[in-house]
Design a protein around this nucleic acid. Sequence first.
DNA 1: AGGTCCCGAGTGGTCGTTGA
DNA 2: TCAACGACCACTCGGGACCT
Length: 274
Amino acid sequence: METWSVDQVCKWLVDKNLGELVPRFQEEEVSGAALLALNDRMIQQLVKKIGHQAVLMDFIRKYKQSNQWLKLTGGPRETSLLTLAQAAPEREENSSPTSYGDQTSLHPAENLDNGLIDQRVLKQRRHAKHVLARYKASQWTKSYVLPEFPYDVKCMLAEQKCPDHSMRIRIIEFLQADMTKYLEGSLYPTTQQYNDVVNALLQAHPFLDEDGCGFFLWKRALKDRFKYVRRPIEDDEQVMRNKCKFGHRRGQTRKSLADIRSDEIKIVQIKTSA
DNA sequence: AGGTCCCGAGTGGTCGTTGA
DNA sequence: TCAACGACCACTCGGGACCT
Protein backbone atom coordinates (compact mmCIF):
# COMPACT_ATOMS: atom_id res chain seq x y z
CA MET A 1 0.00 0.00 0.00
CA GLU A 2 2.89 2.36 0.77
CA THR A 3 3.86 2.42 -2.92
CA TRP A 4 0.36 2.88 -4.34
CA SER A 5 -0.41 5.68 -6.76
CA VAL A 6 -3.46 7.94 -6.42
CA ASP A 7 -5.26 5.80 -9.01
CA GLN A 8 -4.54 2.63 -7.09
CA VAL A 9 -5.86 4.21 -3.90
CA CYS A 10 -9.04 5.23 -5.77
CA LYS A 11 -9.47 1.70 -7.09
CA TRP A 12 -9.05 0.39 -3.55
CA LEU A 13 -11.73 2.83 -2.34
CA VAL A 14 -14.11 1.51 -4.98
CA ASP A 15 -13.34 -2.07 -3.89
CA LYS A 16 -14.19 -1.12 -0.32
CA ASN A 17 -17.53 0.44 -1.30
CA LEU A 18 -16.14 3.92 -0.67
CA GLY A 19 -16.30 5.00 -4.31
CA GLU A 20 -18.12 8.15 -3.26
CA LEU A 21 -14.81 9.43 -1.86
CA VAL A 22 -12.83 9.03 -5.10
CA PRO A 23 -13.28 12.61 -6.46
CA ARG A 24 -12.13 14.09 -3.16
CA PHE A 25 -9.10 11.77 -2.97
CA GLN A 26 -8.18 12.60 -6.56
CA GLU A 27 -8.55 16.29 -5.86
CA GLU A 28 -6.26 16.05 -2.82
CA GLU A 29 -3.88 13.62 -4.61
CA VAL A 30 -3.91 11.03 -1.84
CA SER A 31 -1.40 8.31 -2.70
CA GLY A 32 -0.85 5.12 -0.70
CA ALA A 33 1.90 6.66 1.39
CA ALA A 34 -0.26 9.73 2.02
CA LEU A 35 -3.19 7.51 2.97
CA LEU A 36 -1.13 5.76 5.63
CA ALA A 37 0.14 9.11 6.92
CA LEU A 38 -3.33 10.62 7.39
CA ASN A 39 -4.14 11.51 10.96
CA ASP A 40 -7.65 11.69 12.46
CA ARG A 41 -7.94 15.41 11.85
CA MET A 42 -7.00 15.08 8.19
CA ILE A 43 -9.49 12.27 7.68
CA GLN A 44 -12.19 14.41 9.27
CA GLN A 45 -11.36 17.20 6.83
CA LEU A 46 -11.12 14.88 3.85
CA VAL A 47 -14.22 12.78 4.47
CA LYS A 48 -17.49 14.46 5.31
CA LYS A 49 -19.61 11.56 6.53
CA ILE A 50 -18.78 10.14 9.95
CA GLY A 51 -19.77 6.68 8.78
CA HIS A 52 -17.21 6.86 5.95
CA GLN A 53 -14.61 8.31 8.34
CA ALA A 54 -15.12 5.38 10.68
CA VAL A 55 -14.87 2.77 7.93
CA LEU A 56 -11.78 4.37 6.41
CA MET A 57 -10.02 4.73 9.76
CA ASP A 58 -10.86 1.12 10.49
CA PHE A 59 -9.36 -0.13 7.21
CA ILE A 60 -6.19 1.90 7.71
CA ARG A 61 -5.86 0.79 11.31
CA LYS A 62 -6.37 -2.87 10.37
CA TYR A 63 -3.75 -2.57 7.64
CA LYS A 64 -1.25 -0.99 10.06
CA GLN A 65 -2.06 -3.62 12.70
CA SER A 66 -1.50 -6.52 10.35
CA ASN A 67 1.76 -4.96 9.18
CA GLN A 68 2.90 -4.47 12.75
CA TRP A 69 1.87 -8.03 13.59
CA LEU A 70 3.89 -9.27 10.64
CA LYS A 71 6.95 -7.37 11.82
CA LEU A 72 6.55 -8.53 15.44
CA THR A 73 6.10 -12.19 14.60
CA GLY A 74 8.27 -12.26 11.56
CA GLY A 75 6.20 -14.46 9.28
CA PRO A 76 3.05 -15.12 7.35
CA ARG A 77 1.94 -17.94 9.67
CA GLU A 78 0.71 -15.54 12.33
CA THR A 79 -0.78 -13.31 9.68
CA SER A 80 -2.89 -16.14 8.44
CA LEU A 81 -3.80 -16.82 12.04
CA LEU A 82 -4.95 -13.26 12.36
CA THR A 83 -6.98 -13.54 9.20
CA LEU A 84 -8.45 -16.73 10.55
CA ALA A 85 -9.33 -15.03 13.82
CA GLN A 86 -10.87 -12.07 12.07
CA ALA A 87 -13.06 -14.43 10.10
CA ALA A 88 -14.08 -16.37 13.19
CA PRO A 89 -16.24 -13.74 14.94
CA GLU A 90 -18.19 -13.16 11.75
CA ARG A 91 -18.92 -16.83 11.56
CA GLU A 92 -20.00 -16.98 15.14
CA GLU A 93 -22.31 -14.02 14.74
CA ASN A 94 -23.98 -15.75 11.85
CA SER A 95 -24.10 -19.09 13.53
CA SER A 96 -27.81 -19.27 14.03
CA PRO A 97 -29.29 -22.75 13.67
CA THR A 98 -30.42 -21.95 10.16
CA SER A 99 -27.08 -20.61 9.02
CA TYR A 100 -25.29 -23.82 9.89
CA GLY A 101 -26.87 -25.34 6.84
CA ASP A 102 -24.54 -23.66 4.36
CA GLN A 103 -21.36 -23.92 6.39
CA THR A 104 -19.89 -26.54 4.11
CA SER A 105 -19.85 -24.27 1.13
CA LEU A 106 -18.17 -21.52 3.08
CA HIS A 107 -15.63 -23.58 4.96
CA PRO A 108 -14.64 -26.62 2.96
CA ALA A 109 -11.61 -27.22 5.19
CA GLU A 110 -13.91 -28.22 8.02
CA ASN A 111 -15.38 -30.97 5.90
CA LEU A 112 -12.17 -32.96 5.70
CA ASP A 113 -12.59 -36.60 6.54
CA ASN A 114 -9.53 -36.44 8.70
CA GLY A 115 -10.93 -35.62 12.13
CA LEU A 116 -7.49 -34.81 13.51
CA ILE A 117 -6.95 -32.03 11.02
CA ASP A 118 -10.44 -30.79 11.71
CA GLN A 119 -9.76 -30.63 15.42
CA ARG A 120 -6.43 -28.88 14.89
CA VAL A 121 -8.04 -26.28 12.66
CA LEU A 122 -10.77 -25.64 15.20
CA LYS A 123 -8.30 -25.46 18.06
CA GLN A 124 -6.04 -23.11 16.15
CA ARG A 125 -9.02 -20.93 15.25
CA ARG A 126 -10.22 -20.82 18.87
CA HIS A 127 -6.75 -19.85 20.03
CA ALA A 128 -6.38 -17.18 17.37
CA LYS A 129 -9.78 -15.77 18.23
CA HIS A 130 -8.85 -15.65 21.89
CA VAL A 131 -5.60 -13.83 21.10
CA LEU A 132 -7.38 -11.33 18.89
CA ALA A 133 -10.09 -10.69 21.49
CA ARG A 134 -7.42 -9.99 24.10
CA TYR A 135 -5.59 -7.77 21.66
CA LYS A 136 -8.72 -5.79 20.85
CA ALA A 137 -9.64 -5.42 24.53
CA SER A 138 -6.15 -4.23 25.41
CA GLN A 139 -6.28 -1.80 22.49
CA TRP A 140 -9.35 -0.16 23.97
CA THR A 141 -8.30 -0.09 27.61
CA LYS A 142 -4.63 0.69 27.09
CA SER A 143 -4.64 3.09 24.20
CA TYR A 144 -7.82 5.08 24.73
CA VAL A 145 -7.09 8.73 25.32
CA LEU A 146 -9.33 11.71 24.86
CA PRO A 147 -9.32 13.02 21.30
CA GLU A 148 -7.54 16.21 20.32
CA PHE A 149 -10.33 18.75 20.67
CA PRO A 150 -10.48 21.78 18.36
CA TYR A 151 -8.87 24.99 19.49
CA ASP A 152 -11.97 26.74 20.86
CA VAL A 153 -12.97 23.66 22.88
CA LYS A 154 -9.42 23.36 24.22
CA CYS A 155 -9.53 27.03 25.28
CA MET A 156 -12.85 26.53 27.03
CA LEU A 157 -11.53 23.43 28.81
CA ALA A 158 -8.30 25.21 29.77
CA GLU A 159 -10.26 28.12 31.21
CA GLN A 160 -12.52 25.63 33.01
CA LYS A 161 -15.53 27.45 31.70
CA CYS A 162 -18.84 25.67 31.92
CA PRO A 163 -19.62 24.62 28.31
CA ASP A 164 -22.70 26.09 26.66
CA HIS A 165 -25.06 24.06 24.51
CA SER A 166 -23.05 24.24 21.28
CA MET A 167 -19.80 23.50 23.09
CA ARG A 168 -21.33 20.42 24.71
CA ILE A 169 -22.45 19.24 21.28
CA ARG A 170 -18.96 19.67 19.90
CA ILE A 171 -17.39 17.74 22.77
CA ILE A 172 -19.91 14.91 22.39
CA GLU A 173 -19.46 14.87 18.63
CA PHE A 174 -15.69 14.51 18.96
CA LEU A 175 -15.99 11.80 21.60
CA GLN A 176 -18.47 9.88 19.44
CA ALA A 177 -16.24 10.11 16.38
CA ASP A 178 -13.26 9.04 18.45
CA MET A 179 -15.07 6.04 19.96
CA THR A 180 -16.21 4.93 16.51
CA LYS A 181 -12.60 4.27 15.57
CA TYR A 182 -12.38 1.54 18.19
CA LEU A 183 -15.67 -0.17 17.40
CA GLU A 184 -14.70 -2.28 14.38
CA GLY A 185 -17.47 -0.73 12.30
CA SER A 186 -20.12 -1.27 14.96
CA LEU A 187 -22.26 1.60 16.23
CA TYR A 188 -22.97 -0.04 19.56
CA PRO A 189 -20.37 0.72 22.21
CA THR A 190 -20.52 -1.36 25.37
CA THR A 191 -21.49 0.12 28.72
CA GLN A 192 -17.87 -0.25 29.77
CA GLN A 193 -16.74 1.78 26.78
CA TYR A 194 -19.23 4.56 27.51
CA ASN A 195 -18.06 4.55 31.13
CA ASP A 196 -14.40 4.63 30.14
CA VAL A 197 -14.87 7.59 27.85
CA VAL A 198 -16.97 9.64 30.28
CA ASN A 199 -14.62 8.78 33.14
CA ALA A 200 -11.64 9.90 31.05
CA LEU A 201 -13.41 13.16 30.24
CA LEU A 202 -14.39 13.89 33.84
CA GLN A 203 -11.02 12.88 35.21
CA ALA A 204 -9.26 15.20 32.79
CA HIS A 205 -11.80 17.99 33.35
CA PRO A 206 -13.51 17.54 36.73
CA PHE A 207 -15.32 20.88 36.43
CA LEU A 208 -17.54 19.27 33.76
CA ASP A 209 -19.18 17.28 36.55
CA GLU A 210 -21.13 20.35 37.60
CA ASP A 211 -23.58 19.09 40.22
CA GLY A 212 -22.35 15.57 40.79
CA CYS A 213 -24.59 13.99 38.16
CA GLY A 214 -22.36 14.99 35.25
CA PHE A 215 -21.35 11.39 34.64
CA PHE A 216 -24.93 10.33 33.83
CA LEU A 217 -25.64 13.45 31.78
CA TRP A 218 -22.52 13.07 29.62
CA LYS A 219 -23.10 9.34 29.26
CA ARG A 220 -26.69 9.88 28.18
CA ALA A 221 -25.65 12.61 25.77
CA LEU A 222 -23.08 10.26 24.26
CA LYS A 223 -25.62 7.46 23.96
CA ASP A 224 -28.13 9.80 22.35
CA ARG A 225 -25.48 10.92 19.93
CA PHE A 226 -24.83 7.30 18.83
CA LYS A 227 -28.57 6.79 18.61
CA TYR A 228 -28.84 9.85 16.40
CA VAL A 229 -26.09 8.49 14.15
CA ARG A 230 -27.84 5.10 13.92
CA ARG A 231 -31.26 6.58 13.24
CA PRO A 232 -31.01 7.07 9.44
CA ILE A 233 -29.02 3.89 8.85
CA GLU A 234 -30.88 1.24 6.86
CA ASP A 235 -28.13 -0.90 5.39
CA ASP A 236 -26.50 -2.20 8.57
CA GLU A 237 -27.56 -5.65 9.71
CA GLN A 238 -26.97 -4.97 13.41
CA VAL A 239 -28.86 -1.67 13.35
CA MET A 240 -31.76 -3.16 11.42
CA ARG A 241 -31.91 -6.15 13.77
CA ASN A 242 -32.27 -3.84 16.78
CA LYS A 243 -34.82 -1.65 15.00
CA CYS A 244 -36.80 -4.77 14.29
CA LYS A 245 -36.39 -5.92 17.88
CA PHE A 246 -37.16 -2.71 19.75
CA GLY A 247 -38.78 -0.51 17.15
CA HIS A 248 -42.40 0.36 17.75
CA ARG A 249 -44.85 3.18 17.40
CA ARG A 250 -46.46 4.89 20.32
CA GLY A 251 -49.75 3.27 21.24
CA GLN A 252 -48.84 -0.10 19.77
CA THR A 253 -49.01 -2.90 22.28
CA ARG A 254 -46.81 -5.99 22.33
CA LYS A 255 -49.80 -7.94 21.05
CA SER A 256 -50.47 -5.70 18.08
CA LEU A 257 -46.78 -5.77 17.18
CA ALA A 258 -46.78 -9.54 17.51
CA ASP A 259 -49.82 -9.67 15.25
CA ILE A 260 -48.02 -7.60 12.62
CA ARG A 261 -44.97 -9.85 12.82
CA SER A 262 -47.02 -13.05 12.62
CA ASP A 263 -48.80 -11.56 9.60
CA GLU A 264 -45.40 -10.89 8.02
CA ILE A 265 -44.36 -14.47 8.73
CA LYS A 266 -47.58 -15.73 7.18
CA ILE A 267 -46.98 -13.63 4.07
CA VAL A 268 -43.45 -15.03 3.76
CA GLN A 269 -44.76 -18.57 4.25
CA ILE A 270 -47.39 -18.04 1.55
CA LYS A 271 -44.75 -16.63 -0.82
CA THR A 272 -42.33 -19.51 -0.21
CA SER A 273 -44.98 -22.18 -0.55
CA ALA A 274 -46.28 -20.64 -3.79
C1' DA B 1 -39.37 -25.46 37.45
C1' DG B 2 -42.12 -21.69 36.56
C1' DG B 3 -43.86 -17.03 37.54
C1' DT B 4 -42.88 -12.23 38.79
C1' DC B 5 -40.27 -8.19 39.36
C1' DC B 6 -36.54 -5.14 38.35
C1' DC B 7 -33.06 -3.15 35.62
C1' DG B 8 -30.46 -1.91 31.67
C1' DA B 9 -30.29 -1.38 26.72
C1' DG B 10 -32.58 -0.52 22.76
C1' DT B 11 -36.30 1.98 19.91
C1' DG B 12 -39.56 5.91 18.02
C1' DG B 13 -41.81 10.23 19.03
C1' DT B 14 -41.95 14.92 20.53
C1' DC B 15 -40.35 19.22 21.98
C1' DG B 16 -36.78 22.74 22.71
C1' DT B 17 -32.51 24.94 21.24
C1' DT B 18 -29.22 26.52 18.04
C1' DG B 19 -27.18 28.40 14.01
C1' DA B 20 -27.25 29.36 9.09
C1' DT C 1 -37.69 30.48 9.22
C1' DC C 2 -36.19 25.98 9.11
C1' DA C 3 -33.19 22.04 9.32
C1' DA C 4 -30.21 19.71 12.44
C1' DC C 5 -29.57 17.95 16.65
C1' DG C 6 -29.96 17.15 21.83
C1' DA C 7 -32.98 16.01 25.79
C1' DC C 8 -36.46 13.59 27.50
C1' DC C 9 -40.37 10.38 27.60
C1' DA C 10 -42.86 6.07 26.91
C1' DC C 11 -42.38 1.81 25.44
C1' DT C 12 -40.40 -3.27 24.39
C1' DC C 13 -37.18 -6.90 25.17
C1' DG C 14 -34.02 -9.96 27.57
C1' DG C 15 -31.65 -11.51 31.49
C1' DG C 16 -30.91 -12.08 36.32
C1' DA C 17 -32.61 -12.31 41.05
C1' DC C 18 -36.04 -13.72 43.93
C1' DC C 19 -40.13 -16.15 45.42
C1' DT C 20 -43.51 -19.95 45.57
